[in-house]
Structure formats: structure tokens, C-alpha cells
Simulated scan of single mutants.
Amino acid sequence: MKMKKKGYINTLLYHAFIWIFGFFMLYPVLWLISSSFKGHADIFQRAHHLIPTQWEFSNYIEGWKGFGGISFAVFFKNSFIVATLTTIGQVVSSAFVAYGFSRIRFKGKKILFGCMITTMLLPSQVLIIPQYIMFSKLGWIDSFKPLIVPAFFGLPFFIFLMMQFIQGIPKELDESATIDGCNHMGIFLRIIVPLLVPALMTSAIFAFYWKWQDFFGPLLYLQTPGKYTVSLALRMFSDPAAVTNWGAMFAMSALSLVPVVILFIAFQKYIVEGISTSGLKG
């Protein structure tokens, strides 16, 4: 009886700790959503209160109007275009490269793999100036090309992730497919890709999230307001020379969370499967 009571107390304490810890983790998001319904004065004078004294739904209407005659629908569309194409490019190209490193023998394979891993150790700041000069010479500044095209050449992190997953797939499956007349492309599309779905979905989730919240890339390469992404457009609400419409900015910030939250909830089961990189056991 005492053991049962002790187990009940431990369970109660555990869940209480999880709820308290979860609340502190989610508090910034809750504060953001709460502030999106507050008036300008209420945001700062009652910053510690999550429930507004007066609900200002007009913040969403004003925020959606955007600025300079450009509504936030345009910024959302731009973000979806960049994030979707980047995700497709990174996932597809990384899968091809990962298969090549994992299953195909060729000269210089170890050297190329070492070079790829080395690029993961380079700070992104080191590449900013060379990349900007290169894209400027190509005439790609103020377009989506610098944000999208590099994604079609693979991402080292995703390549390494998929390689670990592919290495868990028995090579006997490849050999059986070869006997049936499949070449490398057939093996990749018919054997590897169906078994690689968890890793592909995990990579897609991370790729979309990283590109959706990317601020520095659009800030560096985009100059026309009509081409701004959501992350860059949110910055335009802050005007040091005038009164910043904080309510509208928080409202659009809350809306910007919706796509990634839906994506995470819909495909969260693939994250654990993909990161575990277990594959199939022979």
C-alpha cells in the first residue's frame, strides 16, 4: 500500500514538474499571442498580464494590410515560394548525394566526403562576402535565386543524416534488385527512397522551418519590398522615426508561427524516426 502511494506521489510530482516547466517554455509564445490582442499602451503597461483588458482584434486587420500598399498576403506568398522550393531542392539533392556516398564506389570518394564534412565546420559568416560577390556578378541580387538555387546542391547536414539511415538498410536488398536488372537509379527509386521516408520527412521539416524563419538571407539579397519574406517584412513594422504599431507586428508574428506549427504537428512522428537513423536491421 505504501509503495502504491509513493508511486502515486512520484507520478503527481512528475506531472506537476512537466506542467510548470512546459509553461515557462511556452510563456514567450503565450505572451506573443496575448500581446497581439492588446492595445499599444496595454502591451507595455500590463506586459506581465497574459489576459488583455480589452481585446483588440483590429491588430490583425491592420497588420494584414502591411505597408506601402503591400499586404501581408504577398509576404506570406514569397515565404512559401522560397521555403517550399528550398525544401524540395535540399531534400532531393541531399538524398541523391547520400545514396552516392553510401552505396556507390568511385575514386576520391573519401576525399569528397571529407570536404563535405569540413564545410559543416565553417562558420556561415565566412561565406557571406564570397557568395554575395558571386551572386552579384551573376546579376541575382534582388531576386529569389540566391535563396533557392544553392539548395539544389545538397546540404551537408541532411546528406550525413540520410547516409546514416541508408547504411542501416541491408545491402542484400540492393543485390537482389541488381539481379532483377535494376541499375543504381532503379535501386535508389524503388528500394532506398521508400525506406528513406522518415529521414526525408525529417529533413523536409527542418529545411522548411529553417528557411521560413531565415532573416539574414532575405535581408542581404532582397531590396524590393514586394519581394520581402515574412521575417523581413516583420522588421518593417519597427520604425525608429515614428510610432511602431506593436500590436499589428505581434499579430503578424503570431500568424507567421501557424505554418510551422501545423507542419510540426502533422509530421512530428517522422522526426524521432528520422533522427534515430535506425533504418532496417539485417
Score class of each variant (00 low, 15 high):
Met1Ala: 08
Met1Gly: 01
Lys2Met: 10
Met3Lys: 15
Lys4Pro: 00
Lys5Glu: 05
Lys6Cys: 05
Tyr8Thr: 11
Tyr8Lys: 11
Asn10Glu: 08
Leu13Ser: 09
His15Met: 11
Phe23Cys: 06
Leu26Ile: 08
Tyr27Pro: 08
Pro28Trp: 10
Val29Tyr: 09
Ile33Tyr: 07
Ser34Val: 07
Ser36Ile: 15
Lys38Asn: 11
Gly39Leu: 10
His40Thr: 15
Phe44Ala: 12
Gln45Met: 09
Gln45Ile: 12
Ile51Val: 15
Pro52Leu: 02
Phe57Val: 14
Asn59Thr: 13
Gly69Met: 08
Val74Cys: 10
Val74Met: 07
Phe75Leu: 12
Phe76Trp: 05
Thr84Gln: 06
Leu85Asp: 02
Thr86Ile: 05
Ser93Met: 09
Ser94Val: 03
Ala95Met: 13
Val97Pro: 04
Tyr99Asn: 01
Gly100Lys: 11
Arg105Ile: 09
Lys107Ser: 10
Lys109Cys: 15
Phe113Thr: 01
Met120Lys: 06
Leu122His: 03
Ser124Leu: 01
Gln125Tyr: 10
Leu127Lys: 00
Ile128Leu: 08
Gln131Met: 12
Gln131Tyr: 08
Tyr132His: 11
Met134Glu: 15
Met134Pro: 13
Phe135Pro: 04
Phe135Glu: 05
Ser136Phe: 05
Lys137His: 09
Leu138Glu: 02
Leu138Asp: 01
Gly139Leu: 04
Phe144Asp: 02
Ile148Glu: 05
Pro150Asn: 14
Ala151Thr: 05
Ile159Ala: 04
Phe160Asp: 00
Met162Phe: 10
Met162Thr: 13
Ile166Met: 15
Pro170Tyr: 13
Leu173Ala: 02
Thr178Phe: 14
Thr178Lys: 15
His184Ala: 13
Met185Phe: 07
Gly186Ile: 13
Arg190Pro: 09
Ile191Met: 13
Val193Thr: 10
Ala199Gln: 11
Leu200Gln: 03
Met201Ser: 14
Ile205Pro: 09
Ala207Leu: 00
Phe208Asp: 04
Tyr209Ala: 07
Trp210Ala: 02
Lys211Gln: 13
Gln213Val: 09
Gln213Tyr: 02
Gln213Trp: 06
Asp214Glu: 07
Phe216Cys: 06
Gly217Val: 08
Leu220Arg: 02
Leu220Ala: 06
Leu220Tyr: 09
Thr224Leu: 01
Thr224Gly: 02
Thr224Val: 04
Thr224Ile: 01
Gly226Pro: 00
Gly226Trp: 13
Gly226Cys: 01
Tyr228Ala: 11
Tyr228Arg: 11
Val230Tyr: 04
Val230His: 00
Leu232Met: 05
Leu232Asp: 04
Leu232Glu: 00
Ala233Gly: 04
Arg235Glu: 08
Ser238Ala: 05
Ala241Lys: 10
Thr244Ile: 03
Asn245Phe: 07
Trp246Ile: 00
Ala248His: 15
Ala248Asp: 09
Met249His: 11
Ala251Arg: 13
Met252Val: 05
Leu255Ala: 14
Ser256Thr: 02
Val258Phe: 13
Pro259Ile: 12
Pro259Trp: 14
Pro259Gly: 13
Ile262Lys: 02
Leu263Gly: 07
Leu263Cys: 06
Ala266Met: 15
Gln268Ala: 12
Val272Leu: 02
Glu273Gln: 14
Glu273Ala: 14
Ser278Trp: 01
Gly279Ala: 03
Gly282Met: 03
Gly282Pro: 07
